[in-house]
Design a protein around this nucleic acid. Structure first.
Lengths: 299, 299
DNA sequence: ATTGTTTTCGAATGATATTTCTATTTTTTG
DNA sequence: CAAAAAATAGAAATATCATTCGAAAACAAT
């Protein structure tokens, strides 16, 4: 701790020098004061006037989204979850005028002490005078009902078979239209992000039939389709079936035309509210499929 | 169940080691098992079957009345508040079969997070022998957590404003890339099905910039974007902003670059499980938006 | 491309917290 | 009432955690 350049000149001013140097990097120079409460911190963060570099921004986002992890974890755990180094958290705290992470963490702990006995009593909302809020709650209810049903009635054996087919495939074609398209789009994206090569048959340029015309015996089709089954999906899958590809399907009833074309299929029933249908269950099951395929291929 | 020999009638064996001595002091000898959750611990404490000496009773009472202090504090702070020595807390924890205070404290921390054992969930493998089932349940949990959070923290006023902007628009441009694309795809589809004219900016043919170049002052943009905000979406929305269109946004933190470009924005935080993120909450909120727009236009 | 600056990383250091151990006090038992 | 057992407090030892700091990397400006 000696021989630092640019000393102020005062011999006994070790701490002063350090403080000055810190302050020059902190927001204090910009007129900010150290936040005293979690709410103040949030206010500063959300004000948008502060521009962070990459890692610090990453920290800010994590703090924003997972305050409880910050309150309860050690610096190492938090850093790990946020995907940064522990020292980055310390830097972040110091920028806001705290002495270090521990000091900073007190904000989060204090905030948390107040909110312990909230045992998720969210259901008993009073009357919903607002139509939009009513719809939102109905939609949330539909999603949760769909998800709950998946948890109860789930054929894990068929699921494993599906994973096996997809994992063994040379190339995976993902097919779904209309309501099913958001699901297949997300599945295709996630597969790609996980390094699993796949083709999303999106019918841009009306080339879907030509695309499935290239399917080979060693490929697999992951099809998603919901009633009414009046889309192009059954036609596409029929072609794939003729070309002897493995076909696995997520659909919502045994009457789906895809069922008889499929090697394996799973029933996922989505609930609707006022005619607006949830996709939550299909997405969850689809994610599990992707995860299973990745696990089997890498394991 | 086999009988325990010597547990009752055997005279005290002085040659026993420390480990055995500890065990004889713990509740394991009485048939208790180490509590796995905070609720189990509470059940044991409240059962009244255990009679503690003075200091340990003091500890039990404090744990009962101030669980959040236990979760958030250090052993010294807790001991101080409870009026006992730190070592007393360790003894207390060991009586219940924990290795020490830290181990014991995890119960309280987990309870506070209200979440599943993210990092130390190795013990619960027995309940879920199937990895795929475990993942599916985790994913469902993430979806439901996301949905639950929407229900609790929802800014209905901003939502109404957003509906107003969209309902007043001549044409709605729906923009979202990567993870957000499934959401926008579903929103666009639903809008069309409800008779609300809209353009899904999907960047097929890399024409997105040209598309948003046609946006007029009387149009509105419905943008969806999640962290990391490294997609093309901010660029597209910036163009729309320059062209003076109304911009409403669904995003997951105030750090989204879209926030400062938007007339109104809603925060929707999606939970993830093992890196796979839910879309349930965004879809539900999006559906509510569509419904609101339709209601306002037809009403 | 080059230089100067900011940001990040990772090992070393310093600080703190947790646990163990032992002497002392309190309670129980013959 | 005395002796034994249990419980407790406090200090010492150990383990863990937070912070610092120099070097490397990324970035920005020339």
């Amino acid at each position: 701790m000696s021989g630092r350049r640019g000393a102020v000149g005062e011999p006994s001013a070790h701490s002063l020098e350090t403080a000055a140097r810190k302050r020059s990097r902190s927001l204090a120079a910009l007129g900010y004061t150290k936040p005293q409460t979690y709410e103040e911190l949030r206010a500063v963060l959300s004000s948008g006037t502060v521009h962070f570099p990459k890692r610090l921004r990453q920290v800010a986002i994590f703090l924003w989204q997972h305050p409880s992890e910050v309150a309860l974890g050690t610096i190492a755990q938090v850093a790990d979850q946020a995907g940064v180094q522990p020292s980055t958290l310390v830097r972040f705290a110091q920028i806001f005028g705290f002495s270090g992470f521990s000091d900073f963490q007190i904000l989060f702990k204090d905030r948390m002490k107040g909110s312990w006995p909230d045992t998720h009593g969210s259901q008993e909302k009073a009357a919903e005078p607002n139509a939009n809020l009513h719809f939102l709650n109905g939609m949330i209810g539909a999603c949760q009902a769909s998800l709950g049903r998946v948890g109860n009635t789930f054929d894990i054996d068929r699921f494993e078979t599906m994973v096996g087919h997809l994992a063994a495939a040379e190339l995976i074609y993902v097919i779904g239209s209309k309501r099913a398209f958001p699901v297949t789009a997300y599945l295709s994206l996630t597969l790609s992000q996980q390094g699993v090569r796949n083709v999303l048959v999106d019918n841009v340029g009306s080339t879907a039939l030509d695309q499935v015309g290239c399917i080979g015996q060693r490929d697999a089709v992951l099809a998603v389709s919901f009633s009414p089954y009046n889309s192009i999906t059954p036609d596409l899958v029929a072609v794939a079936h003729e070309r002897k590809a493995r076909i696995v399907t997520i659909t919502d009833s045994t009457f789906s035309p895809l069922v008889k074309l499929s090697d394996t299929w799973l029933e996922v029933v989505e609930q609707d509210f006022a005619g607006f249908r949830s996709l939550a269950a299909s997405l969850a099951v689809g994610m599990a499929l992707v995860h299973g395929v990745v696990a089997r291929r890498t394991g």
